Simulated scan of single mutants.
Amino acid sequence: MDIGDPEVKALDRLAQREKTSRAALIRKAVDDFLARNSVRAIQLFMESLKRSIFLFSRNSGRKTAVHFSWSCSSSEEEAFGLWGDRKVDGLAYQKDIRSES
């Protein structure tokens, strides 16, 4: 670790006043720094978790295919599975459709 002379002198004065070693002061400073930053990491994680829960709960009220499949009209029932007997590669179909524009 590289520390300038003014900082070393300040640490020595503090160490003498606190009746401890310079190394002990540095270890405590590093421990405090890591503790503060790990608390921030936990706060960021919790904010992210709360945001995810909010977004899930907001989107969970939307209708999905499952909601609509229980009350199909006759035309929807006739259309359901219409392509079931076709052997279509989904990726190839997607590329083909996109290349038309």
Rank of each mutant, 00 (worst) to 15 (best):
Asp2Tyr: 14
Ile3Cys: 04
Ile3Glu: 03
Ile3Lys: 03
Gly4Gln: 07
Gly4Cys: 13
Asp5Asn: 08
Asp5Trp: 14
Pro6Ala: 12
Pro6Phe: 11
Val8Met: 13
Lys9Ser: 10
Ala10Cys: 13
Ala10Asn: 07
Asp12Val: 14
Asp12Phe: 12
Asp12Gly: 07
Arg13Pro: 00
Arg13Phe: 06
Gln16Gly: 05
Arg17Gln: 11
Arg17Glu: 09
Arg17Tyr: 05
Glu18His: 09
Lys19Arg: 05
Lys19Asn: 05
Thr20Tyr: 06
Ser21Ile: 00
Ser21His: 02
Arg22Glu: 04
Arg22His: 05
Ala23Val: 12
Leu25Thr: 03
Ile26Thr: 01
Arg27Tyr: 09
Arg27Asn: 07
Arg27Ala: 12
Arg27Thr: 12
Arg27Pro: 00
Ala29Tyr: 04
Asp31Trp: 07
Leu34Ser: 02
Asn37Phe: 15
Ser38Tyr: 12
Val39Thr: 07
Arg40Thr: 12
Ile42Arg: 10
Gln43Pro: 02
Leu44Thr: 11
Phe45Ser: 09
Met46Tyr: 09
Ser48Thr: 14
Lys50Gln: 10
Arg51Thr: 12
Arg51Ile: 10
Ser52Gly: 08
Ile53Glu: 11
Leu55Asn: 07
Arg58Gly: 03
Asn59Met: 09
Asn59His: 05
Ser60Met: 11
Ser60Cys: 14
Gly61Lys: 10
Gly61Met: 07
Lys63Trp: 02
Lys63Cys: 01
Lys63Ala: 04
Lys63Gln: 04
His67Ile: 01
His67Lys: 01
His67Gly: 01
Phe68Asn: 13
Ser71Gly: 14
Ser74Lys: 14
Ser75Tyr: 11
Ser75Phe: 09
Glu76Lys: 08
Glu76Arg: 07
Glu76Pro: 03
Glu78Pro: 02
Glu78Cys: 14
Phe80Ile: 14
Trp83Gln: 02
Trp83Cys: 03
Gly84Met: 02
Asp85Pro: 04
Arg86Ala: 08
Lys87Val: 03
Asp89Ile: 04
Gly90Met: 04
Gly90Glu: 06
Ala92Val: 01
Tyr93Ser: 11
Asp96His: 05
Glu100Arg: 15
Ser101Pro: 08
